[in-house]
Design a protein around this nucleic acid. Structure first.
Length: 492
RNA sequence: GGCCCUAUCGUCUAGUCCGGUCUAGGACAUCGGCUUUUCAAGCCGGUAACCCGGGUUCGAAUCCCGGUGGGGCUACCA
């Protein structure tokens, strides 16, 4: 085996609250890439910003990844040979490499106050100059630095970037991107609290964890030259980089809380299936060779190519997501649907026998958009649910187009009597055959009878095949419902 | 303001590297039809796009230049 080609990728979220759907999207691309190269998918928690930490976030991140089917191979929970996988537990590492950079004059201490920095920025902006630190503290002698540090003066460590020349980056998705050093800023790499900033931590960890491909969001592209320079300064070989585009909301802005239910787990709670989410997500920015868009995870793994990822940002279209969700729901077995629906189902009254519920679910399956539709779709089949809906029912719905209130009442009265007298076993096929014959015999039209019957039994314009419903409800419940409807009709 | 990315139907995209087969293909959405118990599902069909301006060329969605639009970064946040 060629060890040089070992693929190791990582997802490195910061635990600052709910996991964003964009993080999952980037995670999916990483995961797909790892799977297709028999590589390793690493989760690393980037918790170097102490101010933004949210308790319990790392657990939520893992929970979300698990639900989306993107469980990492290495990470805080599963461990691994490159741990710890939480940056706050790796502080000594960052400090050691910061010291090395300091020694070799690739970095320097900076004592400038926030006020001075702010003034500098404003002046530069007013003069239409690139905003960057002016290397003021590089003029300090090592004695002066030592003295001020021993006095306990607050200091940060900055990288000491060259002032001339440029650096070229070859991105797997964007080809060649060049940056000029005279536009770049001597960023802080070690904060005054001893914690590293992203720039240092990400380079140190990606190197130490033997990451081969950094697949991350486009927002990091501007910091690539600094990272590349750090690899050079530390005499390390950089990994390959791929910057995937951003996902935008319908207002073309970076997806955020304002765009509705963006926390990754909110989709689970709103009745979406993970396979639908994956299928929808993978098609944003990437497309398989053929025209078929419904893809199993295996097919995604087989066909996915990082180089084919579209470099332009994409807008999140929930209607397409809903279609995928409906598709996957329709293709579940009745039993799988029954299982999936449990957390969302508040039955009116007690549960019915499993076999009965399975049948009812099977009838309603085509209409599911989300699992949360279960109450709306299923509860009319329960007596208590029908009774409840009847309070809000308007009898005009019973009347077919081109018919009248009176004729509808007549048709219903007739069919109620026919059903009441019908003694044969209530099978779907027998019911259909016999009733159709009877309708023809009394010279009524199918629509005239079947439409009001179906509406009466379900109190909805949209519902499954009426004979299946009849068979499901049974003789007694059917007649009970029709009697109530008839009473209502007579009053109106 | 500076730097960077980006630009095909309303949306996600194929095609762009290697110009002609593109009167631009698919999916979602939308509209119409079929089927049927006027819904859903399914099947069939329609409307709908190469950001603009120059150039190169017999020929450009595809190559070059310039605009414009959109986005990101510009923190002791990631």
């Amino acid at each position: 085996m060629n060890t040089a080609s070992l693929v190791r990728v990582r997802l490195a979220p910061s635990p600052t609250g709910e996991v964003h759907i964009g993080t999952i999207w980037v995670g999916l691309f990483n995961w797909l890439f790892a799977r297709q190269h028999s590589g390793t998918f690493v989760l690393r928690i980037e918790d170097t910003d102490r101010k933004r930490l949210v308790l319990g976030s790392p657990q939520r991140i893992e929970e979300a990844l698990d639900w989306y089917g993107l469980t990492p191979d290495e990470g805080p929970r599963q461990g691994g040979p490159y741990g710890p996988y939480v940056q706050s537990q790796r502080l000594d590492l960052y400090q050691r490499y910061a010291a090395e950079l300091l020694d070799r004059q690739k970095a320097y201490y900076c004592f400038c106050t926030p006020a001075r920095l702010e003034t500098l920025r404003q002046q530069q902006q007013a003069a239409k100059l690139p905003p960057r630190y002016d290397k003021h503290c590089t003029t300090l002698t090592s004695e002066a630095v030592a003295r001020r540090r021993s006095r306990g003066e607050s200091a940060v460590v900055r990288i000491n970037l060259p002032t001339h020349g440029s650096i070229v980056h070859h991105d797997l998705i964007r080809q060649r991107v060049a940056f000029r050093f005279d536009q770049l800023d001597d960023s802080v790499i070690l904060k005054s609290d001893g914690f590293p900033t992203y720039h240092l931590a990400v380079v140190v960890d990606d190197h130490l964890m033997a990451i081969s491909h950094v697949i991350r969001a486009e927002e990091w592209l501007p910091s690539v030259p600094k990272h590349l320079w750090l690899y050079q300064a530390l005499r390390w070989t950089p990994p390959k980089f791929a910057h995937v585009p951003l996902i935008l909301g319908s207002d073309r802005k970076k997806l955020s809380k304002r765009h509705g239910a963006m926390p990754a787990l909110a989709w689970r709670d709103q009745g979406y299936r993970p396979e639908a989410m994956r299928n929808f997500l993978v098609l944003m920015g990437w497309h398989p060779k053929g025209d078929e868009e419904v893809l199993s995870t295996e097919e995604m793994v087989k066909q996915f190519h990082l180089e084919d990822v579209n470099p332009a940002a994409a807008i999140f279209d929930q209607r397409k997501l809903d279609w995928f969700n409906g598709w996957y729901l329709r293709h579940l077995s009745d039993d799988e649907l029954w299982q999936a629906v449990q957390p969302f189902w508040r039955r009116p009254g007690s549960a019915r026998p499993r076999g009965w519920e399975l049948r009812a679910l099977g009838l309603a399956k085509d209409r599911f958009r989300r699992l949360t539709d279960v109450d709306e779709l299923m509860n009319v089949y329960f007596s208590a649910g029908w009774d409840e809906d009847l309070k809000r029912f308007s009898v005009v719905t019973l009347v077919p187009q081109d018919s009248s209130h009176r004729r509808t009442a007549e048709a219903l009265r007739w069919v109620r009597q026919w059903l009441s007298d019908y003694q044969t076993a209530w099978g779907v096929d027998a019911l259909r055959r016999d009733m159709m014959t009877a309708i023809a015999r009394v010279q009524r039209t199918n629509v005239e009878v079947l439409w009001p019957l179906r509406v009466a039994l379900t109190l909805r314009a949209g519902s499954p095949d009426v004979f299946s419903i009849l068979s499901l409800l049974g003789h007694e419940e059917t007649v009970r419902r029709l009697d109530q409807i008839l009473t209502l009709l007579d009053r109106g």
